[in-house]
Amino acid sequence: MTKTEFTNLVLPFKDKLYRLAKRILVSQDEAEDAVQEVFLKLWRGKEKIANYKSPEAFAITMTKNYCLDRLKSKQASNLKIVHSNYQTSENIEKNIEANDGVEMVFKIMETLPEQQKIVLQLRDVEQFEFSEIAKMLDSNETAIRVALSRARKTVRDTMIKKYNYGIS
């Protein structure tokens, strides 16, 4: 497999991996590093990549595992990933945060447990089918639905609480 073939294969889902990594790690820099690392691993195992039914799903699983490992090692060494996402010009999240309580939604999403965060990201942002998500996370559809429902409800309840608080 040549470099061009590889790039054509993996570039379409680069942004998806980045968004997932950022959802888990919060920091932009950490997320970019995670994506780079995952692509390096895919590149090294590029002979095998053709054997996978969906390279995208495989890459998402890799990204998820890598990011969770990264979090674990940071916690183990008692470090928190500090994010310094300063450049607001390129940051669409930031631009929209100006309206409404969208900023609040992102904040609440940051506080969700990792698994719920990942499920919410894959379903509500990237719009994957439950069966696909179950495969990516090595889980079953029922568990995914439960996690998703919890995540959505947490976002809703926390939001409404803050929303009402803001009004009254």
């Binding site: 970019e32 780079q36 390096l40 940051n91 929209i96 409404d100 969208v102 609040m104 942002v125």
Partner: peptide
């Protein structure tokens, strides 16, 4: 209207793009 930010946020979240080029070592 209280649900609006959730769905605007979820849609906006998909717009985010990675800005860094991927570097691959030569064969």
């Amino acid at each position: 209207v209280q649900y609006k930010p959730i769905f605007i946020g979820l849609k906006a979240a998909k717009e985010e793009r990675s800005t860094k080029e991927i570097e691959l070592p030569e064969n």
